[in-house]
């Protein structure tokens, strides 16, 4: 799905005599270069990604204790056993709850912050660096800090609440409150980061297009939704896909939310990767089942990511269509005119 389907494909330096050595070399170059350039990724992936993946797949269809090792092929029993555990479904539910509480506000907030930062500010660099500060704090450190702040009885947040007359919240005891607290940790660390990614893309949008729309009488808001957002499409796809993949694998923040790292006494904030870790390394020490969880999660993530991709593409391209209807082509014409 190329971003600019109307633009010609890369040139094949055509129309030279067939037996020209240079032409042959050039054609070879054109043919082989794409593969050569992506080769390093795939070579490394084969070593550190594919082998673990296949190994995991192999483990998932065997009875395999973490320390006792392979005890024979059992087909899909591990998958069955995992799907039968109520904690698995609870983990799925928690993961989606935390994921939604973090990703949706985060992306909206990131676009908003990017739009503000995109203004013609004084001391731009200062503001831009400022929003990225949380990102440089390690997740483990964020966990320690927020665990202290969100302590149920003696924490900073509840003390502030008490001062302004609000009731104390059981940030660890209550399932939903714990999801909010963890989502806050995630949003704290990642919103500024995503804002800068979106900002980078905004900066890459030709100013003249936006200005021309404004000159044409479109409101700032309308310009933003009809031109800016559609033109952010590749970046938004990137942000949404990566935050889907990252969000569904969330591990560090909830794990650091208390000292024990299992997701609470009722597993009220246990995510699916934490469940996998507990099955594999914790009380069950069942590497086979943990591998099965990993593969189930893998499939779920791929499905959700595809769904997201499809949705994002539709939203962004329907926006683009609107933009076109409302004279984007004319705007582009103006732009070209300006450049000449």
């Amino acid at each position: 799905m190329p971003a600019q389907p109307d633009v010609a494909a890369p040139p094949s330096s055509a129309s030279r005599p067939a037996f020209d050595w240079r032409s042959f070399r050039s054609r070879l170059d054109v043919k082989s270069a794409p593969y050569l350039y992506i080769a390093p990724f795939f070579l490394l992936f084969a070593l550190v990604g594919l082998f673990p993946l296949l190994y995991t797949a192999f483990v998932s269809v065997h009875k395999w204790g973490l320390v006792t090792g392979n005890q024979g092929f059992i087909g899909l029993d591990n998958y069955q056993a995992v799907l039968d555990q109520p904690r698995f479904w609870q983990g799925m539910g928690n993961t989606f709850s935390i994921f939604l509480l973090s990703s949706v506000p985060q992306i909206i907030l990131a676009i908003f912050i990017a739009a503000v930062l995109d203004a013609n500010l004084r001391a731009k660099t200062f503001w831009r660096m400022g929003v990225l500060v949380p990102y440089v704090v390690a997740p483990v450190a964020v966990g320690l800090i927020f665990n202290q702040m969100f302590a149920d009885q003696s924490g900073f947040v509840n003390a502030i609440f008490a001062n302004i007359g609000l009731p104390a919240v059981g940030w660890h005891a209550d399932a939903f409150a714990s999801h909010v607290a963890i989502a806050t940790m995630v949003n704290f660390r990642w919103t500024g980061y995503n804002a800068l990614i979106v900002l980078a893309a905004m900066q890459a949008i030709p100013r003249d297009i936006i200005e021309a729309a404004v000159v044409d009488g479109a409101s700032r808001l309308r310009t933003f939704f009809s031109i800016t957002i559609p033109m952010l499409r590749p970046t938004l796809i990137f942000v949404i896909i990566t935050s889907t993949i990252g969000g569904l694998q969330i591990f560090d923040e909830p794990r650091m939310f208390d000292q024990i790292g299992l997701g609470g006494n009722d597993r009220q904030w246990m995510t699916i990767t934490m469940f996998m870790y507990e099955v594999g390394w914790g009380n069950q020490r069942n590497f086979g089942r943990a591998a099965a969880v990993a593969w189930i999660l893998f499939v779920v993530i791929v499905v959700i990511a595809l769904l997201n991709y499809w949705l994002t593409s539709r939203i962004a391209s329907s926006g683009a269509a609107t933009a076109k209807l409302h004279g984007a082509s004319r705007l582009l014409g103006t732009t070209k005119g300006d450049r000449r």
């Binding site: 059981g170 660890h172 005891a173 209550d174 299992l262 609470g264 006494n265 009722d266 597993r267 009220q268 914790g282 009380n283 069950q284």
Partner: peptide, 21 residues
Amino acid sequence: YFGYRAAISNAINRVDVDKTH
């Protein structure tokens, strides 16, 4: 032992600390 002990520990804390059960 580890797994059983942890399950009881959680059960007691749900009643004593979290007061959710």
